[in-house]
């Protein structure tokens, strides 16, 4: 049986990788992909704690269902915004989209 801390360590490593991606990517889609990695790390944490700390409660798994739903909604809206930005500015690199910076 794998101990709880190993799940948490896996999730911490994935979260840090996602953080690195958010910091370094220039493309907005790359940032969204890194955000997905971070969200998945958080979901692993939820399910692992739910299994080890309160095995009879379903709250952990149900929370993860809601997290996946909200992540899907945010990704869809983000991609729509990126496509709209690409139509207007012909770029998706976040350091070139600087009209709101003066």
């Amino acid at each position: 049986m794998i101990p709880l801390s190993h799940y948490l360590i896996l999730s911490a490593i994935l979260f840090s990788i996602g953080l690195y991606g958010v910091f370094t990517r220039r493309s907005a889609i790359g940032i969204l992909l890194s955000l997905e990695i971070m969200l998945n790390a958080v979901n692993i944490n939820f399910v692992a704690f739910a299994k080890f700390m309160a095995p009879q409660a379903l709250a952990g798994q149900i929370f993860v269902i809601f997290t996946i739903g909200v992540a899907a909604a945010s990704t869809v809206v983000g991609l729509a915004i990126i496509v709209a930005i690409y139509h207007n500015y012909k770029t998706i690199f976040v350091d070139e989209i600087d009209v709101m910076k003066w």
């Binding site: 101990p3 709880l4 801390s5 948490l8 360590i9 911490a12 490593i13 979260f15 840090s16 990788i17 953080l19 690195y20 910091f23 370094t24 990517r25 220039r26 493309s27 790359g30 080890f52 700390m53 350091d95």
Partner: peptide, 30 residues
Amino acid sequence: KRHNQQKLISLIIASSMAGFLIFVLSRFKA
């Protein structure tokens, strides 16, 4: 270019965060 100029400092921040979390979690006895 697909990545910006902050590679080194991002690597330092992300790996120090991962190291800290692993250090704390490996002493975690549930």
